[in-house]
């Protein structure tokens, strides 16, 4: 049983399928996400594949500060992604609402509505940062019990980009370092 579980976890890390969702973003991060999926970066080497249906996806990539109109859609799509799943919040808007903070039509940031596993900061983030974030989320897929990010974790995220912020997982094996 342990061997099968190991194989399954290995396969989960090797084949993360994405679903991309825009929750009221300015389209900057969406362009960068599509650029990172395009042939130049060849993410198929990591098994990454952009899927059309949330039912097929493992990783939900959400851009934008979550507007009032898109909130229900975000929650529905999150529910439609089958377990095990991870959420990657792309761009500074999803982390802190960025330039849209304080707007009456914005109800973000994202982690107040659905559990977020990885933040990729930047306005917009570079494609290599996005790929790094997705790769980290793929590692998290084999850790079903993990602590979602909170206000405390995201308060220091710089708006101009930086390292990905990843949710903490308990070390599974003695001596193995957690993902954070």
């Amino acid at each position: 049983m342990k061997l099968l579980e190991k194989l399954l976890n290995h396969c989960r890390q090797k084949s993360p399928w994405l679903f991309h969702m825009n929750s009221g973003s300015c389209n900057g991060c969406d362009i960068e996400l599509v650029a990172s999926i395009a042939p130049r970066y060849d993410v198929e080497q990591l098994g990454i594949h952009l899927e059309g249906s949330p039912r097929h996806a493992d990783i939900l990539c959400i851009t934008g500060p979550v507007t009032f109109n898109t909130l229900n859609a975000v929650k529905t799509v999150y529910g439609q992604v089958p377990h095990p799943k991870a959420v990657v919040a792309l761009g500074s808007c999803a982390a802190s609402c960025n330039a849209f903070a304080g707007s009456p039509t914005v109800v973000g940031p994202l982690h107040r509505h659905i559990p977020v596993d990885v933040y990729v900061p930047g306005c917009p983030p570079r494609p290599d940062a996005i790929i790094e974030g997705i790769a980290k989320a793929a590692e998290l897929l084999s850790h079903p019990e993990r602590k979602p990010l909170t206000d405390e974790d995201v308060k220091d995220i710089p708006e101009c980009g930086g390292h990905c912020v990843v949710s903490a997982v308990e070390p599974t094996v003695e001596g193995e370092t957690p993902c954070r």
């Binding site: 194989l7 399954l8 290995h10 396969c11 989960r12 090797k14 084949s15 098994g47 493992d58 089958p82 377990h83 095990p84």
Partner: peptide, 11 residues
């Protein structure tokens, strides 16, 4: 093969 096994383990 990875895709197949991963999908088998999904809900």
């Amino acid at each position: 093969f990875y895709d197949f096994v991963k999908l088998l383990g999904k809900e």
